[in-house]
């Protein structure tokens, strides 16, 4: 028996909106730790890892570890039917072939339940070791989204370089080139407007902008994004999910031909 009650149901809507274009089907794993997911995009270039810790739910009952295979676009369709302020409860029996999403309006005057068929998904799970990164950039998530969107109108790839000068996002295309430099800046009115660059070593990596733009669908989840870089490793683009967890996107770099 699984029963997870999330008062901030809107968070789950935002999580699904940030996943559904990248991944078609995925297993949601429920354990005492929390509600999690790891999935790759269909071309196995990017990976997403979601964790919503059990403490973040108002009620979290998970009698035994369960893996719920769901089509994310169908799940997103169902969650779209919840109000942004609704309380969302996810329910499933141990041997269930469906999952129930229950939506309660904040003043309890409307209660809806949606039942979605589960599916068997044979997915590969990857072990991701904790890594020390050469550079970690924290910046406003909207700024990062803007940069990815702007650069993708000019080129297909972005070179992200971190030096003492700051973090530079560069692209080139048929019509020309573009470089955007963001400097370390903590003298801002609000902490979420800060850009914090921690650098052990300079690093420069090339990534496909198509994936970066897909990751930025998570922008409504968090004011800040963390971009962790090391030479010859996938970049990690992380958005916090309130105080209860995170969504991390891993993207393999491109190499020179």
């Amino acid at each position: 028996m699984l029963e997870l009650r999330l008062v901030q149901g809107g968070l789950l809507k935002k999580v699904l909106d940030s996943l559904k274009d990248l991944v078609n089907d995925a297993n949601f794993d429920c354990s005492a730790t929390g509600f999690s997911l790891q999935a790759m995009d269909s071309s196995h270039v990017a990976l997403v890892a979601l964790l919503l810790r059990s403490e973040g739910f108002e009620h979290y009952r998970c009698d035994r570890n369960l893996s719920l295979g769901m089509n994310l676009s169908n799940m997103a369709k169902m969650l779209k039917c919840a109000g942004n302020d609704d309380i969302v409860t996810i329910k499933a029996d141990d041997a269930a072939d469906s999952v129930t999403f229950m939506f309660e309006s904040p003043n309890q005057d409307k209660i809806a339940d949606f039942d979605m068929k589960l599916m068997d998904i044979d997915s590969e799970h990857l072990g991701i070791p904790e890594a020390e990164f050469q550079a970690i950039v924290r910046m406003p998530s909207a700024e990062f989204a803007r940069i990815c969107k702007d650069l993708s109108t000019i080129g297909d790839t972005v070179v992200i370089s971190v030096t003492k000068e700051g973090v530079k996002f560069s692209t080139r295309g048929d019509i020309g080139t573009a470089n955007i430099v963001c400097r370390h800046n903590t003298s801002v009115d609000k902490p979420e407007e800060a850009t914090i660059i921690e650098m052990e070593e300079t690093v420069s990596l090339t990534f496909a902008l198509r994936y970066m733009n897909s990751f930025t669908k998570a922008t409504p989840l968090a004011n800040q994004v963390t971009i962790s870089l090391s030479s010859d490793l996938p970049v990690v683009v992380e958005y916090k999910v309130a105080e209860m967890g995170h969504i991390r996107f891993y993207l393999a770099p491109k190499i020179e031909e």
Binding site: V45, Y250, A252
Partner: peptide
């Protein structure tokens, strides 16, 4: 531009 690497090249299967 460049050759796209695969994410599975970096992490082992569990």
């Amino acid at each position: 531009r460049g050759i796209q690497r695969n994410i599975t090249e970096f992490y082992r299967s569990t």
